[in-house]
Design a protein around this nucleic acid. Structure first.
Length: 889
RNA sequence: GGUCGCGUAGCUCAGCGGUAGAGCACUCGCUUCACACGCGAGUGGUCACUGGUUCGAUCCCAGUCGCGACCA
C-alpha cells in the first residue's frame, strides 16, 4: 500500500493517470473475448469540446470501459470529419486575418494545401480535450474522412451508385448560401422568426376590366422576386377569381404578360387569395410552376445579386443590385406606378445559413443528387425488423417519419475542401464517372470512338456527410476486406443526440445497407440535449454556454463524467448545473476519505478472490450481499443504457451503505473484536471497496485508478479485474443488519426529537423481547452502543418510568432519561407516530373492507394488505401504551 | 397547421397500476479519533386540471390548460 495524501489533486493526477493508461496500451482491442465496437460520431476537425460532446463521449466511454471489465474485446474507433464548409470558412478567415491573398487568387490546389497545413497545426484540439475527459478511444486507429483509404471508399461508392442510377445530376431548387456561394443542406438551414413586412401589389389585367375587376392584388414578403414572376395563382374554387382563370395580367416594371392559373396551393382565406408564382426562387412556387409548366425565371447570381439578362427581362437598372436594395427599389417603383395597395408588419419565418448567418436564397442550380428514396427502403426495413434498435425506442418514430418523407439528397457543394466529385466531362459535356482520371479517359476514349480528348473534372466537392455516411465501415478498412471489418462490423452502438438522427443515423443506415448488406450498428442510443440549469437551450447569444473544460479545471473530469451519467435519463433534455458537479466532486472526496480510513486500519485491496460464503459475521455477509446486489444493478442498468440508474446504484451503495453504515458498524469490530473477526472484517472491507472501485471505474476512471493502485497489495491492476459477480446473497444476514440499522435510526431519531443531549449515553431497555431479538441485540450490541450512544442494553418486562419509548421491529424499547426527558416533546413525538400509523392502518383497512378489492385484487396483494394491518395494529397498540405511560407520569 | 414530447418537493429530475423518491437547496444539532467537499436529525408533494377505465390511477384512456422541440 502506498500512503494516500489527504486530498486528491485532480489537476496533477488526471493527466498522469491518463498517460499511464494510454502508455499501457489499454485502449487497444485486447484478448479473445467477444468483440464489442463503437465508432465515435466524428467530431468536426474544426471542433472543440462542448458539453454535448462531453456527454456523448462520457457515455460511450462508460460502455467501453464496462465491456472491457466483462472481458469483451473492445474497439472504440476514433476519428474526425473534414467539415467542408466549416473548415473552409475557418481557413479563409485565418487567411484574411493574416492579410494573405484570397483563395481565388492563390487557386484551388494551393488553397487545399493550406487547409491541410491548418489541419496539421490546429485540427487536433478536440482529441486532446477528449483525452482530458478520459475517453478511452484507440487513438492509434484515428481516421480522417479525407484520408486516402476513406477517400477511396467515397470514390467507390460514388461510382457504383452512379452506375446503378442512384446518383444523378438534376436542376432543382437548393438552399443557396450567398456568403459561401454553395448549396447547403436543409439541415444546415435554421428557420427563424423575424419581423418582416407584407407588401400588397396590384397587377393590372391585360384586358382592362373583366366583370368590374381591373387588377389582381397579390401579397409578398419578398417584393424583389416579383421581377421573376411567371404566373399568378388562385384557388380553383375561389369565386372571386373564377372568371379570371386563363386570363393574363401585366407584370409591372418588367412589363411581361403572365397567366392567371388555378392551383390548390393558394389559400383563399389568406390575404387576397391570389399569390405570385416565382418558380426559380421559392420552393412552393417551384412545385406550382412545374405543375403548370410555368417558366422558371432566374433573377440572381451566386452572390444573390439581381441580374438583368435577355432571358429574364429584368430592366438594366436593376443589374447587380443586392437583393435587399432591389427590394426597396421594386417597392418604390410599384408605388410610383400607383400599384402599391398596402404594407403590413408581419412576423415571418426566414431561412438563415447556420454557419454563415445570412439569409438563404432558394436557387435553381445544377447539382448532384442521391436517390435517397430508393436507398431508404432497406434502411427502414432494418429498423422495422429490429436488426437495429433505437434506445429509447420511441425515437424510431422520428426515424421513420424522416425516412418515409425523404427527399433527394443533394450531395454537391461548391467548395474546394472536400472529396472532389469523380466525374469528368468531355468537350461536348458528356460525363464520365470513374474512380480515377485514367479510367475516365478510358471510358472517354471508348465513347469518342478511340479519339483521345481533353477531360475536365467536375469542380464541385461532395457533402461532408457523404463520406461520414460510410464511417462505420470505411474506418474499419472497407472497401478492403480487413480483419477489423470482419471482427468489429456491425458495431454495437451508435450514440448520438436526437437532433442529428437525420444527419447520422439515416445516412449511415442507407449506405451501410446498400454496400455492406448489413446494419452499421445494433443499437442507436439517443441521449438528451444538454441545457443549462434552468432548462434553457445553451447559446452563445444567451451567454449560458457551459464549458466542460471549466468544470474539469475546477472539479476534475471524474465529477463531470459522473454528473453527466447520472443525468442521462431517458428524457430529451438534461439540465447541467455547477452545483450538481460540485456534489459529485464531494462524492469523489467521500470515497477518497473512506479509502484513507481503510489504510489507517491497514485494510488493503488484494488479488485474492474472496468468497463471502466463508464469512462468519452477518455484517460482512451483509456488505457482500449488498455489494453483489449493487454490481448486478449496475450491469443491468448499463445493459439497458440506463446510465442514471447505474450511477445512482453505485452512489447509494458507496456512500449510503458502505460509508454511512458498513464502516461505522465495523469500527467496534476493528477496535474490540477478536482476531478472527478483525481479520475477516478487513478482508470483507477490502473486497467491498474493490467492488466499488471496479464498478465505479467506467464512470470515474481517474480517482478509482489512483485509489486502487494505492490500496493494492497484489500484483494485478484494476485493468486486470473482471466485473464483480452478483450471485452472492444472504437474506438472513441482510435482514439482521437491516434490523440493527432500523433500531439505531429509531433511537437516534427519538433522542433528537426529545432533545437528549448528543453526548449523553443512555441505557436501552428492550421490553419483552423475543429470543430472536435478544440474540440480535446481543450480537449487534457493540454497534448499537456506539452508533446510538447507548451505555448498556438490558431487558425488562415493563419500561422504566420516565422513558422515551420507541417501537422497532415489533418490539418496544425504552430509553430511561428520567431527569432529562422533555415530556412535552415526547408526547408530541408519540402522537405524531401514532397519527402516522393510524393513517396507514386506516388506508389498509379501507382496502380490506372493500369486498370488491378482496374479490378482484391478486391474492398476494390482499395478503400483503392483511400483513400490513397486523403490523400496524401491533405497532399502534405499543405506541398507545407508550403514550399512556407518559400521560401517567 | 402537422408530428413528437413535457407539466411529480423551492430547483433539476427519477418513478409509472397497489406504503410518493434522489441530488441540490432549506431548518435544527454536532471541532464523534476517514471525511465540515463532513456527521446526525428534520421540514417540504390535492404527482397541472376535468372526466373515464379499474377493486384500486401520479402511472392507462379521452379532453382542457400551460410549456417545449422538430417539421411545414
Amino acid at each position: 500500500m502506498r500512503d494516500l495524501p489527504k486530498t486528491f489533486d485532480h489537476l496533477e493526477a488526471e493527466p498522469r493517470l491518463y498517460r499511464e493508461q494510454e502508455e499501457a496500451g489499454l485502449f487497444k482491442p485486447a484478448g479473445e473475448g467477444e468483440p464489442f465496437s463503437i465508432v465515435i460520431p466524428p467530431p468536426n476537425v474544426t471542433g472543440s469540446l462542448h458539453v454535448g460532446h462531453a456527454l456523448n463521449n462520457t457515455l460511450q466511454d462508460i460502455l467501453c470501459r464496462y465491456r472491457r471489465r466483462q472481458g469483451r474485446k473492445v474497439l472504440w474507433q476514433y476519428g474526425v470529419d473534414h467539415a467542408g464548409i466549416a473548415t473552409q470558412m475557418v481557413v479563409e478567415r485565418q487567411m484574411a486575418e493574416r492579410q494573405e491573398p484570397h483563395r481565388r487568387d492563390i487557386g484551388r490546389e494551393a488553397f487545399v494545401q493550406k487547409v491541410w497545413e491548418w489541419k496539421a497545426e490546429s485540427g487536433g484540439m478536440i482529441k486532446n480535450q477528449l483525452k482530458r475527459l478520459g475517453a478511452s478511444c484507440d487513438w492509434s486507429r484515428e481516421r480522417f474522412t479525407m484520408d486516402e483509404g476513406l477517400s477511396a471508399a467515397v470514390r467507390k461508392v460514388f461510382v457504383q451508385l452512379y452506375r446503378e442510377g442512384l446518383i444523378y445530376r438534376d436542376k432543382r431548387l437548393v438552399n443557396w448560401d450567398p456568403k459561401f456561394q454553395t448549396a447547403i443542406s436543409d439541415l444546415e438551414v435554421e428557420n427563424r422568426e423575424v419581423n418582416g413586412k407584407m407588401w400588397h401589389f396590384a397587377y393590372p389585367l391585360e384586358d382592362g376590366e373583366v366583370d368590374g375587376i381591373k387588377e389582381i392584388v397579390i401579397a409578398t414578403t419578398r417584393p424583389e422576386t416579383m421581377l421573376g414572376d411567371g404566373a399568378v395563382a388562385v384557388h380553383p374554387d375561389d369565386e372571386r377569381y373564377k372568371n379570371l382563370i386563363g386570363k393574363k395580367v401585366r407584370l409591372p416594371i418588367v412589363d411581361r404578360l403572365i397567366p392567371i392559373i388555378a392551383d390548390e396551393y393558394p389559400d383563399p382565406e389568406l390575404g387576397t387569395g391570389a399569390v405570385k408564382i416565382t418558380g426559380a426562387h421559392d420552393f412552393n412556387d417551384f412545385e406550382v410552376a412545374k405543375r403548370h409548366d410555368i417558366p422558371l425565371i432566374v433573377l440572381m447570381d451566386e452572390e444573390a445579386r439581381i441580374i438583368a439578362t435577355e432571358e429574364n427581362g429584368v430592366p438594366e437598372r436593376f443589374h447587380k443590385l443586392d437583393r435587399f436594395e432591389a427590394r426597396e427599389r421594386v417597392v418604390k417603383e410599384i408605388e410610383e406606378l400607383g400599384l402599391l395597395r398596402g404594407i403590413e408588419d408581419k412576423l415571418i419565418m426566414q431561412p438563415f445559413g447556420d454557419r454563415s448567418g445570412v439569409v438563404i436564397e432558394p436557387m435553381l442550380t445544377d447539382q448532384w443528387y442521391v436517390d435517397a428514396k430508393t436507398l431508404a427502403g432497406p434502411a427502414i426495413e432494418a429498423v422495422n425488423s429490429g436488426r437495429t434498435k433505437f434506445v429509447p425506442e420511441n425515437w424510431s418514430k422520428t426515424y421513420f417519419n424522416w425516412m418515409d418523407n425523404i427527399e433527394p439528397w443533394c450531395i454537391s457543394r461548391q467548395l474546394w475542401w472536400g472529396h472532389r466529385i469523380p466525374v469528368w466531362y468531355g468537350p461536348d459535356g458528356t460525363p464520365f464517372c470513374a474512380e480515377d482520371e485514367a479510367e475516365a479517359h478510358r471510358l472517354a476514349t471508348e465513347h469518342y470512338d478511340g479519339e483521345a480528348v481533353d477531360l475536365v473534372q467536375d469542380s464541385d466537392v461532395l457533402d461532408t456527410w457523404f463520406s461520414s455516411a460510410l464511417w462505420p465501415f470505411s474506418t474499419l478498412g472497407w472497401p478492403e476486406d480487413t480483419e477489423e471489418l470482419r471482427e468489429f462490423y456491425p458495431t454495437a452502438v451508435l450514440s448520438t443526440a436526437f437532433d442529428i438522427i437525420f444527419f447520422w443515423v439515416a445516412r449511415m443506415m442507407m449506405m451501410a445497407m446498400h454496400f455492406m448488406g448489413e446494419v452499421p450498428f445494433r443499437t442507436v442510443y439517443i441521449h438528451a440535449l444538454v441545457r443549462d440549469e434552468h432548462g434553457q437551450k445553451m447559446s452563445k447569444s444567451k451567454g449560458n454556454v457551459v464549458d466542460p473544460i471549466e468544470y474539469m479545471d475546477e472539479f476534475g473530469a471524474d465529477p463531470l463524467r459522473f454528473t453527466l451519467a447520472s443525468q442521462a435519463t431517458q428524457g430529451r433534455d438534461l439540465s447541467l448545473s455547477k452545483q450538481r458537479v460540485e456534489g459529485y466532486r464531494n462524492f469523489r472526496t467521500k470515497l477518497w476519505n473512506a479509502a484513507r480510513f481503510l489504510q489507517l486500519r491497514s485494510v488493503p485491496i488484494t488479488d485474492e478472490e474472496i468468497d463471502p460464503h466463508t464469512f462468519e459475521l452477518p455484517l460482512n455477509r451483509w456488505i457482500a450481499h449488498e455489494g453483489a446486489k449493487m454490481a448486478g444493478e449496475v450491469s443491468r442498468a448499463l445493459d439497458d443504457f440506463r446510465f442514471d440508474e447505474a450511477a445512482s446504484a453505485i452512489y447509494q451503495f458507496a456512500w449510503g451503505t458502505f460509508c454511512d453504515w458498513y464502516l461505522e458498524l465495523s469500527k467496534p469490530i476493528l477496535d474490540e473484536g477478536d482476531e478472527a473477526a478483525q481479520a475477516e472484517t478487513r478482508k470483507a472491507m477490502g473486497a467491498a471497496l474493490k467492488t466499488i472501485l471496479i464498478c465505479l471505474e467506467p464512470f470515474m476512471p481517474f480517482v478509482t485508478r489512483e485509489l486502487y493502485h494505492a490500496m493494492n497489495e497484489g500484483k494485478k491492476t484494476i485493468d486486470d479485474q473482471r466485473w464483480p459477480a452478483s450471485s452472492f446473497a444472504d437474506d438472513g444476514a441482510a435482514g439482521e443488519i437491516a434490523a440493527a440499522i432500523a433500531l439505531i435510526s429509531e433511537i437516534r431519531s427519538a433522542r433528537t426529537e426529545v432533545n437528549v443531549p448528543v453526548a449523553a449515553k443512555l441505557e436501552l431497555v428492550a421490553v419483552d423481547a423475543p429470543d430472536q431479538v435478544k440474540a440480535l441485540l446481543d450480537a449487534q450490541a457493540p454497534a448499537i452502543k456506539r452508533l446510538a450512544r447507548i451505555e448498556t442494553i438490558t431487558h425488562a418486562s415493563e419500561p422504566p418510568k420516565g422513558s422515551v419509548q420507541i417501537v422497532s421491529g415489533g418490539v418496544t424499547y425504552a430509553l430511561p432519561v428520567a431527569d432529562v426527558i422533555d415530556l412535552k416533546a415526547e408526547m408530541e413525538r408519540l402522537a405524531k407516530a401514532i397519527g402516522k400509523t393510524e393513517g396507514e392502518l386506516k388506508k389498509a383497512n379501507g382496502k380490506l373492507s372493500n369486498e370488491r378489492f378482496v374479490a378482484n385484487a391478486p391474492a398476494e396483494v390482499v395478503e400483503q394488505e392483511r400483513e400490513r394491518v397486523a403490523a400496524f395494529t401491533a405497532e399502534l397498540e405499543q405506541l398507545q401504551a407508550a403514550k399512556a405511560r407518559i400521560e401517567a407520569l
